[in-house]
């Protein structure tokens, strides 16, 4: 059965391609790569195709890239598929993109076989970036996408996630996404994140809302809010920061994609220090308000700091559990609503 445009393709690669991959895989490989798939329409225009055809071709290329990533041993890939700003496009185009997503996301559940080679070396990406671009140049047309349906992606351990404000999408698409995400959520060999109805600013705002609600409910205190806590509330809470970002089409913008994650620089040790300082400040503050017996000696203050730290950790743990439950409920609700609709 010949089948184009599945998510993960098993292509007949040329020997040159195969040997390039194996040579590359001998060196260090990034763990997490992010892609901005841009320029579909410009490509369509240049080759006098229809817009929809351009998007489809773009998707094919993406599938090919995912294949390369798996061959190279990159275990996490994030793809910017649809921005919230893209809702501003013409209605036909948005509809067309939604339809494409509908097809592809439901297709995902009937995905086929591929081999996965896991490698965990140190990081040194510049060379990979260059050689990836060489590859893109080398293998422009690869029409041998062979797909065997029936076997599911699940079997091979790919965990599929959708990042973004999915409430903005049509209900049936939400259902398809919820299906795919819940079905693959236990996999942990490779991760595929698709950003849909996503902008980074929206994501940061969502995280701010989350913590503000936590404060409102009394689960955490204002002073508990830290970089780490906000990070845990982002859509990408399960991922490490991307090591490499590739944008096609030659633009040099980030276009509201993973801004927070790319700014990650501070070392964990520094974050720990900031946390400790906060704890200490709070302890001293409270000592000033209600001086406990024997405050004068340093031991008592240290003790106080320790209790503060423990309490803070407890609060944060509770809060994160709360957030986790809410996230799980989001997809459950979508699926339940569908069941109710089917029932009536």
């Amino acid at each position: 059965m010949k089948e184009m445009s599945t998510w993960i393709r098993d292509t007949n690669k040329s020997w040159l391609h195969r040997s390039l991959i194996s040579v590359l895989a001998a060196g260090p490989i990034p763990k997490h790569v992010a892609f901005i798939m841009d320029g579909n329409r410009r490509f369509a225009k240049k080759n006098s195709l229809e817009q929809a055809q351009g998007h489809l071709k773009g998707f094919d290329k993406l599938a090919e890239m995912l294949d390369w990533c798996l061959d190279l041993g990159i275990t996490e890939v994030t793809v910017y598929a649809f921005s919230i700003e893209n809702f501003k496009r013409s209605k036909e185009e948005v509809d067309c993109l939604m339809e494409l997503a509908r097809q592809k996301f439901s297709r995902l559940m009937h995905e086929n076989d591929y081999s996965l080679v896991m490698l965990w070396p140190d990081l040194y990406y510049t060379s990979i970036f260059i050689i990836l671009s060489i590859q893109i140049g080398l293998c422009t047309k690869d029409e041998h996408g062979v797909g065997l349906s029936g076997e599911v992606i699940d079997k091979h351990g790919v965990c599929f996630r959708v990042l973004g404000n999915i409430n903005m999408l049509p209900v049936d698409l939400q259902e398809i996404i919820a299906d795919a995400v819940t079905m693959t959520c236990h996999n942990n060999r490779a991760f595929l994140n698709v950003c849909f109805a996503y902008t980074s600013q929206d994501e940061i705002c969502a995280a701010m809302r989350e913590v503000a609600e936590g404060v409102q409910l009394g689960l955490i205190k204002e002073s508990d809010i830290s970089e780490r806590l906000l990070e845990k509330c982002l859509y990408t809470y399960q991922s490490c920061a991307p090591d490499l970002l590739v944008r096609t089409s030659g633009e040099v913008r980030l276009s509201d994609f993973l801004l927070w994650q790319e700014a990650k620089l501070k070392h964990e040790a520094e974050l720990d220090r900031i946390q400790k300082e906060d704890d200490y400040r709070n302890a001293v503050e409270s000592c000033r308000i209600t001086p406990p017996a024997g405050t004068q000696n340093g031991f008592s203050v240290q003790h106080k700091v320790n209790t503060f730290a423990a309490q803070r950790q407890e609060r944060i743990k509770n809060f994160l559990q709360h957030v986790e439950r809410r996230r799980a409920r989001l997809f459950q609700d979508i699926l339940q609503n569908r069941c109710i609709k089917c029932g009536t």
Binding site: I204, M208, R209, V211, G214, V215, E222, E227
Partner: peptide, 30 residues
């Protein structure tokens, strides 16, 4: 990033004081 953290703190406290609604934390207002 600290700038955003301190903003999140201030927003939380104004939500707590009910001087701001939770749903008002939007990209434009931030």
């Amino acid at each position: 990033r600290h700038q955003l953290v301190s903003l999140a703190r201030d927003l939380s406290s104004s939500v707590l004081r009910q001087s701001m609604k939770l749903s008002n934390i939007e990209p434009i207002s931030v």
